[in-house]
């Protein structure tokens, strides 16, 4: 009747020849993954190996036959290049600034939309549009229609306040680019945070209210912690795309004046496609990758903590 509790020490999970858990099954599970994995490795990883290889060579496309192995010379040049440092700083400022401001604006807009009012869907539609618009078109729009010193709307709007015909783009090149980027990315942040706000479980909000929390208390104690992972996701995804900003700089300032508004993607592009200096630009690429890996390691930890709780054991 009763089974006594003898410990079967010899029992271990069985590894059958077929069926779940077997070696064949492992390949059955892996097979669907392989095409995507192989494709991604070939298209995105292989080029980096070439980048490293090229970065050790002196190679200028306009001087055929100039190609030779120079060791770490390119890297020395990169690190002694004051323009490169300036551009790296620009990149950090541009990325961090754009992410931060679009996040703040996005949060405010999301809070504004997180209640029922007449025309809410319409307003949301208007607000997301800058994210959908082609970045090149957006940059064009800012450069001409908005920032143009003579005919731009910005100057027209500010003229009652005594602001003359300011050439915003020449005077504040990096800030102008950032304004355009923030305008484009605020909708993205807003959508994410709005989704977060609306996914709050109602019973928790009600419980907090019944427990005597004020509106501000509910917001601080319940909503902000809940929004946290949405904000983190916004930061990570925003940074991924914004660090690669190219279109806006290309269209609005061409990195100028000088390198005042160039970021790394644009600077490397200049070196490679206008200066034809493959070795130099490859070395810069490697430096950027290494720096990104360092930053990304933290970012990835963030994204993983927030979004794969499911099977993390």
């Amino acid at each position: 009747m009763t089974v006594t509790a003898e410990r079967p020490a010899e029992l271990t999970p069985r590894r059958p020849d077929r069926g779940p858990g077997s070696r064949a099954d492992g390949w059955v599970r892996r097979a669907p993954l392989l095409p995507a994995l192989v494709f991604t490795i070939i298209v995105t990883q292989l080029p980096f190996l070439f980048t490293i290889y090229y970065s050790l060579q002196s190679w200028n496309l306009v001087r055929p036959g100039s190609r030779q192995f120079v060791g770490i010379d390119n890297y020395i040049l990169v690190f002694t290049d004051s323009q490169f440092r300036q551009v790296a700083l620009n990149t950090v400022l541009l990325t961090a600034g754009s992410v931060l401001f679009s996040l703040i604006l996005g949060l405010l807009f999301a809070l504004l939309l997180d209640r029922a009012f007449l025309g809410r869907g319409f307003i949301r539609t208007l607000l997301i549009t800058p994210f959908l618009i082609t970045p090149v078109a957006a940059a064009l729009l800012w450069k001409t229609v908005l920032f143009d010193p003579t005919y731009g709307l910005i100057n027209f709007v500010l003229s009652p306040f005594g602001v003359g015909a300011t050439d915003w783009i020449s005077t504040f090149p990096l800030t102008s680019v950032m304004v355009a980027l923030v305008w484009q990315w605020t909708p993205f942040m807003m959508l994410l945070i709005l989704a977060g706000l609306q996914s709050q479980p109602h019973d928790v909000l009600e419980a907090a209210r019944v427990d005597g929390a004020t509106s501000w208390g509910v917001f601080r104690e319940v909503t902000i912690p809940h929004l946290r992972r949405f904000i983190e996701l916004g930061i990570v995804l925003g940074a991924i795309y914004l660090i690669n900003t190219f279109d806006a700089i290309y269209m609005m300032t061409q990195g100028g004046p000088g390198t005042a508004s160039a970021n790394l993607p644009f600077y490397i592009y200049q070196r490679a496609f206008l200066g034809f200096d493959i070795g130099q630009s490859a070395a810069m690429g490697v430096v950027v990758v290494v720096a990104t890996i360092i930053v990304a390691t933290f970012a990835l930890r963030l994204i993983f903590r927030s979004f794969s709780g499911g099977e993390e054991t």
């Binding site: 991604t40 490397i268 994204i303």
Partner: peptide, 22 residues
Amino acid sequence: VLFFFISTKMLPVVAAIVPIYV
């Protein structure tokens, strides 16, 4: 696997453009 996929997005495209072009 997931880490690998998302990490490829983290690497700046600009670092690969030179060899891709070549």
